[in-house]
């Protein structure tokens, strides 16, 4: 899997996004926040945490929480098998893993290619969205992953 994050050969003055799949929809997040991509592994449950927080894992000595966005946003079936993917993110100097159905591609987008997001029709609250972009024949929803992960709604980061 790690090869999939390597597709950033482009030198265009654009931003690169990693696209991933949740249910039937394709999402994208800023590739600069991605630390690594790995397979899902069993977590240690955390007591009294919301169900979308799967627990914590040992990432080379760091105790890292794993969040299942599918549960959080009610998209797709939260199944866990050898194909289940975890994207490890570096957000505000913390590491957080998100469980997704799959990782598909790296895409380059210029700012004008990103259209404002509609107020509805997406599982995510629009404040966590950058906008929409067209990829081939379908839409890609660009997520402001930093905003999402650090939000009070997820409650992973203790509000300062």
């Amino acid at each position: 899997m790690p090869s999939e994050q390597q597709g950033n050969a482009s030198t265009m003055p654009t931003r690169e996004f990693l696209t991933f799949v949740l249910g039937d929809e394709t999402y994208a997040l800023d590739i600069m926040t991605v630390k690594e991509i790995r397979g899902y592994e069993a977590t240690t449950k955390i007591a009294n945490a919301p169900d979308f927080i799967k627990g914590v894992i040992n990432l080379r000595g760091d105790i890292v929480p794993i969040i299942d966005l599918r549960i959080k946003f009610g998209i797709g079936e939260p199944t866990y098998n050898e194909w289940t993917i975890v994207i490890m993110l570096n957000i505000q100097e913390r590491i957080v893993g998100i469980v997704v159905d799959g990782v598909s591609d790296v895409m380059n987008l210029e700012d004008e290619e990103i259209k404002p997001a509609p107020e509805f029709g997406v599982a995510f609250d629009s404040k966590y969205l950058h906008g929409l972009a067209a990829l081939d024949d379908h839409m890609v929803i660009i997520v402001d992953i930093e905003e999402l992960i650090s939000s009070d709604e997820l409650g992973i980061f203790e509000s300062a």
Partner: peptide, 22 residues
């Protein structure tokens, strides 16, 4: 460090099998 304080839990450790224990 990467998560938050949890009531009743002082921290975590990594066990021999690589798993996490609270």
């Amino acid at each position: 460090r990467h998560y938050r304080r949890v009531d009743g839990v002082a921290g975590a450790t990594i066990m021999g099998d690589g798993g996490v224990a609270l």
